[in-house]
C-alpha cells in the first residue's frame, strides 16, 4: 500500500482527496436541501418532524451521516493543511501583485473557514439540540378516512423513550403520532434576525466556494473535455452556486418573514 500513500500524499493526490470529498459533500447538499424543503409544507411540521425521525433512526442513513460528518472534518482540515503547505511555497510575497485569477478561486480557504464556523453554529442549533436537549413534543392525529391531520402541542414536561410513538385506533379511525417538534425549534430559531442574517451570509459563502470548487474538482480528477467541461462549469454555477444556496437561504427568510 506504499504506492497508495505516496500517490495520495503527492501534490496531485492531496488535491484528489479534496476533490472527491468535495464532490461527496455536493451530493449531501442536494439531499439535505430536498429533505428540508419539507419545512415549507404548511402541515404543522408533520412531514418535517417524521422525516427527522427517519433520518436519525434508519441505520443506513445513520452510517452515511457519520461518514458525512467525518468527510466534512477531513475536507476542512485537509484543506487547511494544503493551504498551509501552499503558503510555504512562497515565503516572500510581491510588493505589487495583479491577480489574473478569479477572486473565488483565490478565496477557497477563507470561504471554507467561514463554512466551518457556520457548520459548528448550525450543528449546535439543531443537530445537538435534537439529539441531546429536551425538545417539545407534538402530537399529530390523522383521520384515516379523510387524511386530515390535527396538530396538538404536548405539555412542556412531556417526554418519551421512543423517538416516534405511533398508534392506530381502528375503531375511532385515527392514527396518532408523537414526535419531537424540531419544526417548532427551527421556526423559533429563525425569529432571531441575527441568526437569519448569519445563515443567509453563510449561503453566500457556499455559493462562492462552489463557483470555483465544483468545476475545480473535475479538473483535479483530470476530467476535462471540450464537450463536457462547459456543461460541468454551468452545472457548478447555476445549480450548485446559485439554485442550491438560494433554496437554503429561503428557509430562514421564510420563517422570519412569513411565519
Amino acid at each position: 500500500m506504499g504506492w497508495l500513500t505516496k500517490t495520495l500524499t503527492s501534490s496531485i493526490g492531496k488535491k484528489v482527496l479534496m476533490a472527491l470529498t468535495g464532490l461527496f459533500l455536493c451530493t449531501f447538499l442536494v439531499v439535505h436541501l430536498i429533505g428540508n424543503l419539507q419545512l415549507f409544507k404548511s402541515d404543522g411540521g408533520y412531514a418535517f418532524n417524521t422525516y427527522a425521525v427517519f433520518m436519525t433512526t434508519f441505520p443506513v442513513i445513520k452510517v452515511v451521516s457519520y461518514v458525512n460528518y467525518a468527510l466534512i472534518l477531513f475536507h476542512a482540515f485537509w484543506g487547511i493543511y494544503i493551504t498551509y503547505k501552499n503558503r510555504q511555497a512562497r515565503p516572500v510575497g510581491y510588493a505589487v501583485n495583479k491577480n489574473s485569477s478569479s477572486i473565488f478561486s483565490r478565496s477557497m480557504a477563507i470561504l471554507g473557514l467561514i463554512l466551518l464556523v457556520y457548520l459548528v453554529v448550525h450543528m449546535s442549533d439543531f443537530w445537538y439540540r435534537y439529539h441531546y436537549e429536551h425538545l417539545p413534543y407534538v402530537k399529530y392525529t390523522e383521520n384515516l378516512t379523510t387524511g386530515d391531520i390535527t396538530t396538538t402541542a404536548m405539555d412542556e414536561g412531556y417526554t418519551q423513550v421512543v423517538k416516534k410513538f405511533e398508534i392506530s385506533d381502528v375503531a375511532a379511525g385515527t392514527k396518532t403520532i408523537i414526535v419531537k417538534d424540531l419544526y417548532k425549534v427551527v421556526g423559533y430559531a429563525f425569529q432571531n434576525i441575527l441568526l437569519v442574517l448569519f445563515y443567509v451570509l453563510a449561503m453566500f459563502a457556499v455559493s462562492f466556494h462552489l463557483i470555483h470548487g465544483f468545476q475545480s474538482a473535475f479538473q483535479t480528477l483530470g476530467l476535462n473535455h471540450p464537450k463536457y467541461s462547459p456543461l460541468i462549469k454551468n452545472l457548478g454555477i447555476w445549480i450548485f452556486a446559485i439554485l442550491i444556496p438560494i433554496g437554503y437561504a429561503a428557509m430562514p427568510l421564510y420563517f422570519y418573514f412569513l411565519k
Partner: peptide
C-alpha cells in the same frame, strides 16, 4: 505548491499553455 486550478498560470503564460495540460497531467499521474 499544489495546483488549486485558479488559472493564473495559463493567463500569464507567455506561450499561452492551456490548463487542459494540467488536467492531462492529473490523468497521466493518477
Amino acid at each position: 505548491g499544489a495546483c488549486t486550478n485558479t488559472g493564473a498560470c495559463a493567463a500569464e503564460c507567455p506561450k499561452e499553455i492551456s490548463l487542459d495540460n494540467i488536467a492531462r497531467l492529473n490523468r497521466e499521474f493518477l
